[in-house]
Amino acid sequence: MSHLLPCAQFKREDQEDLGMGLQRMACIARYSVTIFAAGLTAAGAYANELKCEGPFARNAGHEQLVSAFGEANVAKEIVHEEGMEIKASVVFPDDPEKRLEVIWWDEEASRQPSIVRTLGTGWSLPKGVRVGMPLNEVEAANGRPFLLYGFGWDYGGTISDWKGGALARLPGDCNPFAIFSPEQSSGEDARLKVSGDSEFGSDTLK
Rank of each mutant, 00 (worst) to 15 (best):
P6Y: 03
C7P: 04
C7E: 10
A8D: 07
Q9W: 14
Q9L: 15
Q9R: 13
K11C: 13
K11V: 13
R12A: 14
Q15S: 12
D17T: 15
G19S: 07
M20L: 15
G21C: 09
M25W: 14
A26Q: 03
I28N: 10
I28Y: 09
I28V: 15
A29V: 09
S32Q: 09
F36P: 03
A37H: 09
A38T: 14
G39M: 13
L40K: 09
A42L: 05
A42R: 01
A43F: 07
A45I: 03
Y46L: 09
A47D: 08
A47P: 05
E49I: 12
L50A: 15
C52A: 05
E53C: 11
E53M: 05
P55R: 03
A57V: 03
R58K: 02
R58N: 01
R58S: 03
G61H: 07
H62Q: 13
H62V: 13
Q64L: 12
L65V: 01
V74W: 00
V74M: 00
E77R: 03
I78V: 15
H80V: 14
E81Q: 04
G83Q: 02
G83A: 03
E85K: 14
E85R: 13
S89T: 06
V90N: 07
F92L: 02
F92S: 01
P93A: 02
P93G: 00
P93R: 00
D94N: 01
D95Q: 02
D95I: 07
P96S: 07
P96A: 08
E97R: 01
E97K: 02
K98I: 04
R99V: 03
L100F: 13
L100T: 08
V102I: 14
V102L: 01
I103D: 08
I103V: 12
D106L: 10
D106R: 15
E107C: 02
E108Y: 00
A109G: 00
R111Y: 00
P113V: 05
R117P: 04
G120P: 10
G120R: 14
T121W: 06
T121N: 15
G122K: 04
G122I: 07
W123M: 00
W123I: 03
S124F: 08
L125G: 08
K127Q: 12
G128Q: 06
V129A: 01
R130M: 05
R130A: 14
V131G: 12
M133H: 10
M133K: 11
L135G: 04
E137M: 15
A140K: 15
R144E: 02
R144P: 00
P145C: 11
L148M: 14
Y149M: 13
G150Q: 11
W153D: 05
W153S: 02
D154T: 14
D154H: 05
D154A: 09
G156T: 01
G156C: 02
G157Y: 03
K163W: 02
L167C: 04
R169V: 12
G172S: 13
G172C: 05
D173H: 04
N175E: 11
F177E: 11
A178S: 10
A178I: 13
I179M: 05
S181D: 13
P182Y: 00
E183N: 07
Q184F: 06
Q184W: 01
S185A: 08
G187H: 12
E188V: 12
D189R: 11
A190F: 05
L192W: 08
G196F: 08
D197Q: 04
F200Y: 12
D203L: 02
K206E: 07
